[in-house]
């Protein structure tokens, strides 16, 4: 740090690396090293007790050709992602639009709508969820008012996915806050000008708000997909913790956890982790690649 004063502005090498040191150690020891480690382990048979035994692609072969639970858990996770991500984003967008109309008490509503995102990840709320979706629970009592006979959401394997999706959609608040911030960045004169030109509210939404929000939408979409693929606590707590009933809560991460930490088949779990990484990479890759067709970076860019 003493030397930097004398040096020209553009060379801070030593100081900079000193500042970066904790992160660099973390990057190599907790991220890059373990990533390569799990790639290696995925090609071995390993149970923590004996040294890893090289078996080539046997784990992957087993996973892709002879593992019904893998196929099932992947399907289940896809269904979860494809249901919960769009629903959550649509809700977030609709509520953000409703709140953005210069409504009184915006702060209070924003807080109320955010609270589920704050609490939703906890074990406590998953337990509550299990209870209100119970066949005798509040949801079915509510459906009963309309003469509907709700199913056993938790006990019946065909329905278990819906409470879990609902729990995710319930937490739309964090995406909504981001949308609200994005909407604030849209210059008001755009709306005024379009109003003069006779555009209605719906036209304004599709021609102004939505295009201006696409960068934020892009961000929300990526983060939601990545997080949804990794959902664990709801599946673990709303289900029975072993993937049941009848594998209805066997989410991908839960399967990975059980393989690695219940059966201590750590090579297999590493293979599952790498497949998961590739799937997430493909999804985000597709969104990145298509982004130039639908993400609009307008003039408002220099705003912040």
């Amino acid at each position: 740090m003493r030397t930097s004063r004398r040096l020209p502005i553009h060379t801070h090498n030593r100081t900079a690396y000193a500042f970066l040191l904790p992160w660099l150690i973390g990057f190599f020891c907790l991220t890059l090293g373990p990533m390569l480690g799990s790639l290696y382990l995925s090609l071995t048979k390993y149970n923590l007790l004996r040294p890893p035994e090289w078996i080539g692609f046997a784990n992957f072969k087993q996973i892709f050709t002879n593992d019904a639970t893998f196929t099932h858990s992947l399907q289940l996770t896809f269904v979860y992602v494809l249901l919960s991500v769009p629903l959550r984003i649509i809700f977030a967008l609709l509520v953000a639009l409703a709140l953005n109309q210069g409504i009184r008490g915006l702060g209070i509503y924003r807080t109320v709508y955010y609270i589920p995102s704050l609490l939703g990840g906890s074990v406590a709320i998953s337990i509550v969820w299990r209870q209100i979706f119970d066949s005798e629970g509040v949801i079915n009592a509510f459906l009963g008012w309309f003469g509907l006979d709700g199913p056993a959401w938790i006990a019946n394997p065909d329905y278990l996915i819906y409470p879990i999706v609902t729990l995710s959609v319930w937490q739309f608040g964090s995406a909504m806050v981001i949308f609200l911030a994005g909407l604030k960045q849209v210059p008001a004169d755009l709306y005024e000008a379009s109003q003069v030109d006779g555009a209605g509210k719906i036209r304004q939404f599709f021609s102004i708000s939505l295009p201006m929000l696409t960068p934020v939408l892009f961000f929300n979409l990526i983060m939601s997909i990545i997080n949804s693929f990794q959902a664990f606590t709801p599946a673990y707590v709303i289900g029975d913790g072993h993937g049941g009933p009848l594998d209805a809560s066997m989410f991908y991460t839960l399967y990975l956890y059980l393989k690695g930490f219940s059966y201590f088949d750590m090579g297999y779990a590493s293979a599952l982790a790498w497949i998961m990484l590739l799937i997430i990479a493909v999804f985000t890759g597709i969104i990145f690649a298509t982004s130039r067709f639908w993400v609009f970076y307008g003039d408002g860019k220099e705003g912040r």
Partner: peptide
């Protein structure tokens, strides 16, 4: 990066 890919090591 998903947490799981570094989890086992």
């Amino acid at each position: 990066l998903p947490y799981h890919v570094t989890l086992v090591p």
